[in-house]
Design a protein around this nucleic acid. Structure first.
Length: 427
RNA sequence: GUGGGCGUAGUGAAGAGGUUAUCACGCUAGGUUGUGGCCCUGGAGACGAGGGUUCAAUUCCCUCCGCUCACCCCA
């Protein structure tokens, strides 16, 4: 019987960890720079949370959730996204009593039952931020800036930022109505996928991948022409704020894309997406938007919110594609090589070195040559050789594995050897 | 759910209807007595599964399974 990992999951092996360290560390650092504090929510939640929060009609809820009956008879779902959980936690923990807005971030695994392909797997990881409790466009600009800086700090180049406004519920009905009318007028020019889409979700025809549709979509009614009142003012201020970002970030740029829509039901007003220039078909690195209706939908007080989620697998794919350097993982400071009867002395010495905070690995009991090769393969900085000769004389031979390979004898004492290793800079 | 491509050691590749299935990297053992990297020699390790065609199938055909890319959808 051969076990295999479940479809759409990955083993993240040691050689890949430097990439993961980079996306996590950069996320933490940037989030902190913007005053966002970490939140961790459970990996699974009440199924209803996602049905209501994400939207019953969405594909995520319709066919992509990992749901199951737990032993107590409750319906449980592995989270397919992070925002609903964070909002649940906000409500449940009474965070509306904190100074607003509350700035939160998370980095965690998400689960969706989908056919895997490039840039899409069933267990994936997202870095997400949420700013809850402030309706003003300054917060929209801040979240977008955060996404921009995250990508910039990762070193990823040639990313385009697209934004759009979906407006509020009132104007949206009119807009969708007109949009529907428009596409119906040219329905015979639409490919079949988009004819079907038009029936299901007229908005989604806008971001169709079909070339024929794209030309038609460019000429379609634009949602920004339908937004009015506060939503309109919000949008106009946001554009000014974004323009002003260029003062701090000379490279900053964005394009208003009337075809940009988002798949989740809870978005309103601002939506945005970061995408690499040479995007594959599942290339979106970060996507987000404002979700003012969500808190109410989840049964809390009406509370505005905005956030984004970034796909870590996709970010890492881009790091690799652009051949950006990551820190190689370091080898141990010391590999202890033993000969003859010195085996147990080597084990004791290794423990002594670790106790002194010297990272130390015991070479496997083989020939000396094999042990030296092993030390080299581990990228060790030093080997400490313990043979009968050394034990007799109460010393250890400490050899640097660098270019020179300097070797000296040091008193057989963990503290003394630790000191020697430290002082020669080979730590 | 739909469609395309692909399944040969741990990894990446080569291969032919017919003796021991090839190569590289990796792993492992050696190459002077107690010293790594480079080099040399040896060793272990593979035809996804099941049917069919054939004297003979890892090779041809079918089914299944898996991987992969794309659609759908999305981070």
């Amino acid at each position: 019987m051969n076990f295999k990992r479940p479809r759409g999951t990955a083993d993240i092996l040691p050689d890949d960890q430097p990439y993961w360290g980079k996306v996590y560390n950069t996320a933490r650092k940037v989030a902190h720079q913007f005053g966002y504090r970490r939140i961790d929510t459970p990996t699974f939640e009440d199924t209803n949370l996602f049905e209501r929060g994400v939207g019953n009609e969405t594909d995520i809820v319709q066919k992509e959730m990992y749901s199951f009956d737990d032993h107590g008879g409750d319906m449980i779902t592995l989270r397919p996204e992070g925002t609903a959980s964070v909002c649940r936690a906000y409500i449940e923990n009474g965070m509306h009593n904190l100074p607003q807005p509350v700035r939160l971030f998370y980095a965690a695994a998400m689960f969706r039952y989908e056919r895997p392909q490039a840039g899409r797997v069933r267990q994936f990881h997202q870095f997400g931020v949420e700013a809850i409790g402030d309706p003003s466009p300054e917060v929209d600009a801040e979240v977008i800036e955060l996404g921009w800086k995250y990508i910039a700090d990762l070193g990823i180049k040639d990313v385009t930022l697209r934004i759009n406004s979906l407006g509020d519920a009132e104007g949206r009905a009119d807009y969708i109505n007109d949009l529907d009318k428009y596409f119906l007028g040219v329905v015979d020019q639409l490919p079949k996928v988009d004819q079907d889409r038009l029936k299901r979700a007229p908005l989604r025809v806008l971001d169709s991948k079909a070339r024929e549709t794209q030309a038609l979509a460019d000429a379609a009614p634009k949602s920004v022409d339908y937004i009015t009142g506060e939503a309109k003012e919000h949008w106009e201020v946001l554009l000014v704020l974004l323009d002003n970002l260029k003062q701090a970030y000379p490279d900053f740029s964005y394009t208003v894309d009337h075809r940009l829509v988002r798949g989740l039901d809870y978005y309103n007003r601002t939506v945005f997406e970061f995408e690499p220039a040479d995007a594959g078909s599942q290339g979106t690195l970060i996507a987000g938007g404002r979700y003012d209706p969500l808190m109410g939908i989840l049964g809390g007080q009406e509370t505005p919110g905005i956030g984004f989620a970034g796909g870590l697998e996709r970010l890492i794919m881009e790091l690799k594609k652009q051949e950006l350097p990551v820190k190689a993982s370091k080898g141990p400071d010391v590999v202890v090589v033993t000969l003859g009867d010195a085996g147990s002395a080597g084990s004791t010495l290794a423990a002594g070195l670790r106790a002194k905070d010297i990272s130390t690995v015991l070479a496997p009991k083989r020939s000396m040559k094999a042990q030296m090769r092993y030390a080299n393969s581990q990228n060790a900085l030093n080997v400490v050789i313990l043979g009968d000769r050394e034990v007799e004389n109460g010393v250890a031979s400490v050899k640097s594995l660098g270019e020179g390979g300097a070797q000296s004898e040091v008193t057989l004492d963990a503290a003394a050897i630790a000191e020697h290793v430290r002082s020669t800079g080979n730590q």
